[in-house]
C-alpha cells in the first residue's frame, strides 16, 4: 500500500463533500423558506440515504459509467441528508424573537437570511457537515467496486489474496482518517457553540 491511495481516498471524499455543501445548503434553505417543497426535499434526501450504497453506486454507474465521477455523485447524494436536515433545523431553531427584531429593523428577507439567520444556524449546519464527512469517508470504500480506487481497493485486494496485513493497513488508515477528521471538526464545532452561547449570555445580561 502506498500513500497515493490515501490521497486518492481523501480526494474523492473532499470533492464530494464540497459538492454536497454547494448543493445541500441551498436545498436546506429552500426547505426552510418554502413550506410547500419542504416535505418533498426532506423526504427525498432521507430516501437517498436509505438506498444501499452499492445499489446507489450501481444505478449511477449505469448512467455515468465506471470511474471517479460515479463515486463522487454517489457520495454527494448519500451525504445530502445530514447537511440539508441540519441546515433546515438550524434555521428553524433560530429564536423567533431575533427574527422578529431583524424584521422590525426593516431588513429584507434575503438580508435577514444572510446576516442573521444563517450565522446563527451555522453551528448546527457545521455539525451536519461533520457527520456527512465522517460517513462519506466510510462509504467511499465502495468506490473500488465501480472503479473509483481509494482505500477500499486496498482492503478488497487484501481480502482477495487473503493478506491480513494489507486488510489491516487499509482499515487502520481509514479509521485514522475518520477519527482525525471527526476530532478536528468536533473541536471547531465546540468553538462555534461556545461563541454562540457567549453571545447569548452577554445579550441576556445587557
Amino acid at each position: 500500500m502506498n500513500a497515493n491511495v490515501v490521497f486518492e481516498h481523501l480526494y474523492i471524499v473532499l470533492i464530494s463533500m464540497a459538492a454536497t455543501i454547494i448543493i445541500g445548503l441551498p436545498l436546506g434553505i429552500l426547505a426552510y423558506t418554502n413550506k410547500r417543497v419542504r416535505k418533498v426535499i426532506l423526504w427525498t434526501v432521507d430516501l437517498l440515504q436509505t438506498i444501499p450504497a452499492l445499489a446507489l453506486l450501481g444505478i449511477i454507474m449505469v448512467l455515468f459509467g465506471a470511474g471517479k465521477l460515479t463515486v463522487i455523485i454517489g457520495l454527494l447524494l448519500y451525504s445530502l441528508l445530514p447537511v440539508v436536515q441540519n441546515t433546515f433545523l438550524g434555521l428553524d431553531n433560530v429564536d423567533p424573537a431575533i427574527k422578529e427584531a431583524a424584521r422590525g429593523m426593516g431588513m429584507s428577507k434575503v438580508y435577514r437570511l444572510i446576516h442573521v439567520e444563517l450565522p446563527l444556524a451555522f453551528p448546527l449546519i457545521f455539525t451536519g457537515i461533520r457527520i456527512a464527512t465522517v460517513t462519506a469517508i466510510g462509504v467511499a470504500v465502495f468506490a473500488t467496486f465501480v472503479g473509483g480506487g481509494g482505500l477500499g481497493s486496498v482492503i478488497y485486494r487484501g481480502i482477495h489474496i487473503q493478506n491480513m496485513q494489507l486488510i489491516l493497513s487499509g482499515t487502520l488508515s481509514l479509521m485514522g482518517m475518520a477519527v482525525l477528521f471527526d476530532s478536528i471538526m468536533a473541536m471547531i464545532e465546540k468553538k462555534l457553540y461556545c461563541r454562540e452561547n457567549s453571545v447569548k449570555i452577554t445579550n441576556s445580561k445587557s
Partner: peptide
C-alpha cells in the same frame, strides 16, 4: 463504528 462492514466480512472470511 468507523470500520466499514467490508472489513468485518473480509477478516472473518479469512
Amino acid at each position: 463504528q468507523t470500520i466499514p462492514g467490508i472489513v468485518f466480512i473480509g477478516i472473518l472470511f479469512l
